[in-house]
Design a protein around this nucleic acid. Sequence first.
DNA 1: GAACTATTTCGACGATCATAGAAATATCGC
DNA 2: GCGATATTTCTATGATCGTCGAAATAGTTC
Lengths: 118, 118
Amino acid sequence: MKMNSPAAVEALGALAQEHRLALFRLLVQAGAAGMPAGAIAKELKIPNSSLSFHLAHLTRAGLIQQRREGRSLIYTADYEAMNSLVSFLMENCCGGATCAPEAACGDDAAQPQGKVSA
Amino acid sequence: MKMNSPAAVEALGALAQEHRLALFRLLVQAGAAGMPAGAIAKELKIPNSSLSFHLAHLTRAGLIQQRREGRSLIYTADYEAMNSLVSFLMENCCGGATCAPEAACGDDAAQPQGKVSA
DNA sequence: GAACTATTTCGACGATCATAGAAATATCGC
DNA sequence: GCGATATTTCTATGATCGTCGAAATAGTTC
């Protein structure tokens, strides 16, 4: 995915909030298995309506994705977007000197290993 | 540097703004040489007062640092803070599977190579 | 198709943020 | 100390954001 300034601002803004940051990190750690909205709300201890607002915010920013599974909506972190964001932030780091691996995660390493009560 | 949730929220919030993001990336690319406030204002085409606001914001978030050089204040990106932030974001990525280099930039690679009119 | 569960949308409130001109502060060179 | 340059603080205004109860929507099961 190609990252640009407006998209990066949107993504960073989405992450710049306590609940959304915790939410995103939760999904990052959950791996490809993801988590249903209800479980997230319970984990983060916030009302469903608030969670929904934050989920929509992160989704709009392209940081997480949604899939339906039964009557639950499962959310997963978008590792590609995360990597793009990080790469964008570090672009030409240190004036072009080769110094950053520029991050890479999930593209082919995100195997499901978490528990999901599906 | 140890990163925690409030600090990460502050850092992300600082970056979640068009001008500040451009400013930070400019400094990231400027390397250890950094840039004086005036040059930044000219580069980003924003009023001094606005720039000062944004510089203070990024400084408070711990993402940039300031040093005096003559009558100019030189700002530099704090690569360590940037790396900490990225690492925090990717912590236990993919459920602990080894997949991310977790970023590294500047700690010993940020050699001055830009021009500074000192 | 009705009862049930999971999740989202609506609405209203208070709080925080971005902007930029004008005035104040700091440093320099003489 | 004075004039000049560099940067910050002050101040005011409009805009955006986070919260969460209540109602609405979507999907499941029988």
